[in-house]
Design a protein around this nucleic acid. Structure first.
Length: 232
DNA sequence: AATCGGCTCAACCGCTATTGT
DNA sequence: GACAATAGCGGTTGAGCCGAT
């Protein structure tokens, strides 16, 4: 079995969706719900595979999703959670209402990853990059004053990561009198995050120190994250 | 005006996890 | 437990946009 094979079925359309297809999908889901995805295209009159319909709905058509620029707060959350979870886009998305894993993944790959690299932070490990001798690379020699902030951030991150691991262990071994209802990954992530306010504080310190942003701009949902110290 | 290159993001692909029988 | 169907995840691709030349 390979669900991706659905894209290869004869007669099924691939590629960008037309407005007409969007409307058909939207109308059908509004009336009936999505039901079983592989059965939906035939019922909705679409020449698409169910997987394609599902993706289109989740990533584009769903009324619950938000489009447009990521706010400073959202970017901050993504960076925090990426430090904790790595490329677990769906887990990260679960903490960002109205954003999809695909949106977050794209935003990370096109913006945040580059930004961290520019700052001399390894986007994979979230640690300051080091050269072969183990010294911190500071390509422009302008980030030296930021290293203290990065150390503060890194310290908080490691502490939070350790706490997260402990949390996961305790969840995986529930007490005997605990509810039989298992926690989902999403709720576990959410629980862990709620207990990491120090990460938030550390990031706010880093952000305000590195980019000259105020607490107000950090709180503003409309504010976007722009590097102000890139002029050479 | 043409074209070139970089960037963005929707969509595809391949795979694993989960659920039902 | 085995198997099939379905759902979902994360990596990758490529079309289209846009600014620079």
């Amino acid at each position: 079995m390979d669900s991706s094979a659905c894209y290869d079925k004869a007669g099924l359309r691939k590629g960008p969706w037309t407005a007409e297809e969007d409307q058909k999908l939207l109308d059908y889901i509004k009336q009936h719900g999505h039901g079983i995805w592989p059965l939906l295209p035939a019922k909705a009159g679409l020449q698409r595979c169910g997987k394609s319909c599902r993706l289109r709905w989740i990533n584009y058509l769903s009324p619950h999703m938000k489009r447009g620029k990521f706010s400073m707060r959202e970017e901050q959350t993504i960076i925090q959670l990426h430090a904790l979870l790595g490329n677990k886009w769906s887990a990260i998305a679960s903490q960002l209402p109205k954003r999809t894993d695909n949106q977050i993944k794209n935003h990370w790959n096109t913006h945040l990853k580059k930004r961290l690299t520019k700052m001399g932070i390894d986007p994979v490990t979230h640690k300051p990059k080091t050269d072969a001798l183990g010294s911190v690379i500071d390509q422009s020699n302008k980030h030296a004053s930021n290293l203290g902030h990065m150390a503060q951030w890194e310290s908080a991150r490691v502490e939070a990561e350790a706490r997260f691991v402990r949390e996961m262990k305790s969840v995986s071994k529930p007490p005997l009198d605990s509810s039989p209802t298992q926690l989902t990954n999403k709720s576990r992530v959410g629980q862990a995050r709620q207990e990491c306010p120090d990460v938030l504080k550390a990031w706010q310190g880093v952000a305000s120190g590195m980019f000259g942003i105020t607490k107000d701009s950090l709180e503003s949902p409309a504010s976007t994250f722009t590097i102000q110290e890139t002029s050479q």
